Simulated assay, not measured.
Amino acid sequence: MIGNIIMSRNLFALLTAVAVVTSTPAFAKDDAPSAPAGSAAVVAKSGQVIRDVNGRRIGVVDTVRGDKVFIITATKMVSVPTSTLSLGSGGLQTSLKSSDVH
């Protein structure tokens, strides 16, 4: 009888561990930010010009840190989320308006 209790505890622990391990990748995948279908991630580099959604020049990339691109404008340094960047006909472009970047 004690052997059956120990075996059922071990089986329960094993099934619990399998459930946790097999569910973890699906959970992480759901939380990951996704790019629009058919698009590749854009990598901004120092010195690149960034334009707004209307094609107007915002400024030049100074640095990229994590999920933000720091841009030197005519009057100050601002940050733009990398998730808003794409390659447009004029080069690097954000989906934001110039007035939204501050």
Rank of each mutant, 00 (worst) to 15 (best):
V61D: 04
V20G: 04
V69F: 08
Q93G: 01
L85T: 03
P81E: 02
K97F: 13
F70N: 07
A74D: 14
N54V: 00
T94L: 02
L14E: 08
V43F: 06
F70M: 06
P36K: 13
S34E: 11
D30C: 00
N54D: 14
G90I: 01
T24W: 11
V42I: 11
R56A: 11
L85G: 04
K68S: 10
S34G: 06
L92P: 02
A37S: 13
A44G: 05
A74M: 09
M7L: 13
D67K: 10
D30Y: 10
I71R: 02
S34N: 09
K29H: 13
D62T: 08
D62G: 04
A19R: 02
P36L: 12
A40F: 10
A40P: 00
S79V: 00
T16V: 14
K45L: 08
F70L: 08
T84Y: 02
A41G: 01
N4F: 05
I50Y: 04
A40N: 12
A44Y: 07
V18H: 00
G59W: 01
P25T: 09
P33N: 10
T24H: 03
A13E: 11
A44M: 08
R56N: 12
K68P: 00
F27Y: 13
F27Q: 14
V69S: 06
N10V: 07
K45M: 07
V69A: 12
T16E: 05
I2W: 07
A74E: 13
R57K: 15
L15V: 07
S99N: 08
V61N: 04
A40E: 14
G59D: 03
P36Y: 03
I5S: 07
A17K: 06
Q48Y: 02
A32G: 00
I71S: 03
S23H: 06
S89C: 00
S83C: 00
D31Y: 10
K68A: 11
D100M: 08
F12A: 15
A40S: 15
D30E: 13
Q48W: 02
A32L: 14
I50R: 04
G59S: 07
V80L: 12
I6Q: 09
A28H: 10
S8I: 12
I71T: 07
N4E: 13
S79L: 01
F12L: 13
S99G: 02
D52Q: 04
P81L: 01
V42P: 12
G66R: 04
